[in-house]
Design a protein around this nucleic acid. Structure first.
Lengths: 197, 197
DNA sequence: TATTAAAATCAACACGTTGTTCATAAAGGA
DNA sequence: TCCTTTATGAACAACGTGTTGATTTTAATA
């Protein structure tokens, strides 16, 4: 069927694109490269996408929508979740499992020749999940000083996201369960405690 | 003097490049754009740089070398420094003051159309400073689990770096002193404590 | 002031990529 | 079989690239 043929062409394009993106980055890669690598006519590419940026956008949008669908479901807390924690274990776990499922492309997006805009979107999604849970109380007294809310939010967020990004960049060696547990438990340790083991 | 003329040309190039980088990013910007914006002949650009990537490299290298010079000096701890802390207040302060001094270009490098490779280099420099101070003891017992050293290091690092990056991206409104103090003091709070003020 | 070397200009070059168009061919469902 | 969708192939003008060679400008210095 034509739908089948269509799918085959676009998935070949995605595959070639991922390889080229990983080895050269988006700037250095041309539509001609994609066409050559996919063994399709260059015109065929333009039948599906406006240009290489449009292709990148559409592939990322797939991931973003999937992640949103996974994380936006209102969770009734499962038995694993600690209601005091800022981020539900079960939701993080599901997100990590999805990352593993789409690993080839996500690893590339997060890697050296990847796209910081995707990382930013990913951060924003995690941020939304966290913010739902964080008490809406304003600033935190810090000795005689204030820790402004925007900085407090950023620190929280980066603690979670940096673990996930390191996991991906190392090749997702650990299981999603291990990482989810690590994230949950780390919430109760200060950097000073982490450093001076 | 000819040295003067040379400096004027390259600094005009840097200025135009910074503007274009901020508004389009490195991919979308051409050597022709730079030449037009700087009101120089395109050939003149190639008298100084191999291509736009070479220009980017050289501008970044300046910053990196300056930062290394600032941070590599072996500090005898100043009276402000707490010898127990993982990162010396006085060193961080000097780095932040330099960032403020070179703010226009650094803000661009760290911004939406900036270069993730620069952020990575910046992280690596901060990482080196931190690692000197962190106890070389291995893993940390975390309940019944271990927190692997690579993840512990990454969490420490991202806590510091994310504050600095947020500061830059917001336009460096706060003083370097405020940020340095924030970084130093935050080391003793867990994410959980930060969240539930 | 005249000389000289460095720095900048200008035009031209071949080349690759871009996005578009048009005519044609292949595929496969109705 | 017919018909629509999908893919092909060739050609197009436009633009950016990096390089060349001839020329002019600049400013230091002899």
């Amino acid at each position: 069927m034509s739908q089948q043929r269509h799918t085959e062409t676009t998935s070949k394009i995605k595959q070639t694109f991922t390889i080229l993106l990983k080895e050269k980055g988006l700037d250095a890669l041309s539509v001609s490269d994609i066409a050559r690598g996919s063994q399709i006519n260059r015109g065929t590419f333009y039948l599906h996408y406006l240009d290489k940026y449009d292709l990148m956008d559409k592939l990322q949008e797939e991931l973003i929508q999937d992640l949103l669908a996974i994380l936006d479901t209102d969770v009734e807390l499962s038995e694993m979740d600690n209601p005091l924690d800022i981020i539900p274990y079960s939701q993080i776990l599901k997100a990590l499992q999805y990352v593993k499922q789409e690993f080839t492309f996500i690893e590339t997006l997060v890697g050296e020749h990847g796209d910081p805009k995707f990382v930013a979107k990913f951060k924003a999604i995690i941020s939304a999940v966290i913010k739902e849970k964080v008490s809406h109380s304003s600033n935190l007294k810090l000795g005689t000083e204030h820790l402004p809310k925007d900085y407090a939010d950023e620190i929280l967020l980066s603690g979670v996201v940096s673990i996930i990004l390191l996991w991906i960049r190392k090749g997702a060696i650990e299981s999603p369960e291990q990482i989810a547990k690590m994230i949950t438990q780390t919430r109760f340790l200060s950097p000073s405690e982490i450093a001076h083991a």
